[in-house]
């Protein structure tokens, strides 16, 4: 009856590694969400749609260019396209709402989600799409005597790289430092003669870029369907909440909890695997209602 004992230790380690590599994608997406939440104080409901656009754009780049060059280019071009879309939406519409009530901002991102979701249907159609990884990332490597997909190993490498890049941006660049200051006290930043609206724009576009990158990275691991935006956004939200709103390291902790509890769930009770992360979230929130790490506001 005890399902865990039927697995060896190395299988357990393998399952955890798969969970960790899934955590990396969740981390990249939720770090972007957290950045936007921290600086603009808006839960960006459209984040999932931008992730979906990233994945579909990666599909297009892969089909147009093809080969492994297409894949590597898609990792750059797809997030850039998403950043462009979000830049247009922010400058044309969103930036006029910053003075309004919070609820209006949130509902606007919901409107954006509805519009972008149907735009994807309009441009890419309703068919199931898939992207193949380049040869170098196909197959699997042997770790601890078990085969482990190379692509997941690649994800395990790229997650920390993105995290380090984001850390560099927030702590070492001028724009990053200003966004951090704007997250704490936007009035003061404005009083110092900095155009807060553009700071918000930068943070928003970078956050959306990360959503697009997450989409481009996830493309080879799953079939691309229209519902993928709904599925991811709630997970990313919960990760950001348990990590501490606006805290990028909190997003990392949250995604690790999410990914690992999910893979444990797959081992223990496959039918209820998706419930495990939610239970973990509820437990965290009952004891640390404001998240595990310090939130920025």
């Amino acid at each position: 009856m005890d399902t865990a004992s039927t697995y060896g230790l190395s299988e357990l380690a393998m399952q955890l590694l798969v969970g960790l590599s899934r955590s990396m994608i969740l981390f990249i997406i939720s770090a972007g969400l957290s950045l936007i939440l921290g600086v603009l104080r808006v839960p960006n409901v459209a984040h999932g749609s931008l992730y979906m656009i990233g994945a579909f754009a990666a599909f297009t780049v892969n089909t147009v260019i093809g080969g492994s060059l297409g894949f590597w280019l898609s990792l750059i071009l797809a997030p850039l396209f998403v950043a462009l879309v979000s830049f247009a939406a922010e400058r044309a519409l969103f930036c006029h709402l910053y003075e309004r009530e919070h609820l209006m901002l949130l509902l606007f991102t919901f409107a954006l989600m509805l519009i972008l979701g149907d735009m994807v249907k309009l441009f890419w159609g309703v068919e199931y799409k898939s992207v193949t990884a380049p040869d170098i990332l196909k197959g699997s490597v042997i770790i601890l005597g078990q085969p482990f997909p190379t692509y997941n190993l690649f994800l395990l490498v790229i997650g920390p790289v993105v995290g380090f890049g984001l850390w560099l941006f927030v702590n070492k660049t001028r724009v990053g430092k200003i966004s951090k200051a704007a997250a704490v006290d936007r009035m003061m930043v404005g009083a110092l003669g900095i155009n807060v609206s553009w700071v918000f724009c930068t943070a928003f576009v970078i956050g959306c870029f990360l959503a697009g990158l997450g989409g481009a990275l996830v493309a080879p691991t799953m079939g691309l369907t229209l519902g993928m935006d709904h599925a991811i956004i709630m997970e990313a939200f919960l990760i950001v909440v348990i990590g501490g709103l606006g805290n990028i390291w909190g997003a990392l902790v949250g995604s690790l909890i999410f990914g690992v509890t999910h893979s444990l769930g797959v081992m223990l009770l496959p039918q209820f695997a998706i419930i495990f992360p939610y239970v973990a979230v509820v437990i965290v929130l009952i004891f640390w209602p404001r998240g595990l790490l310090k939130s920025v506001w």
């Binding site: 839960p43 919070h102 939200f237 709103l245 979230v281």
Partner: peptide, 25 residues
């Protein structure tokens, strides 16, 4: 116990738990 956005977030997570239960059980 919480205000505003935190209130919303914890409610969404509890609700999602119920959804996941109904979805899988």
């Amino acid at each position: 116990r919480l205000r505003q956005l935190y209130f919303a977030m914890i409610q969404i997570s509890l609700g999602s738990l119920l959804w996941a239960l109904a979805f899988r059980w």
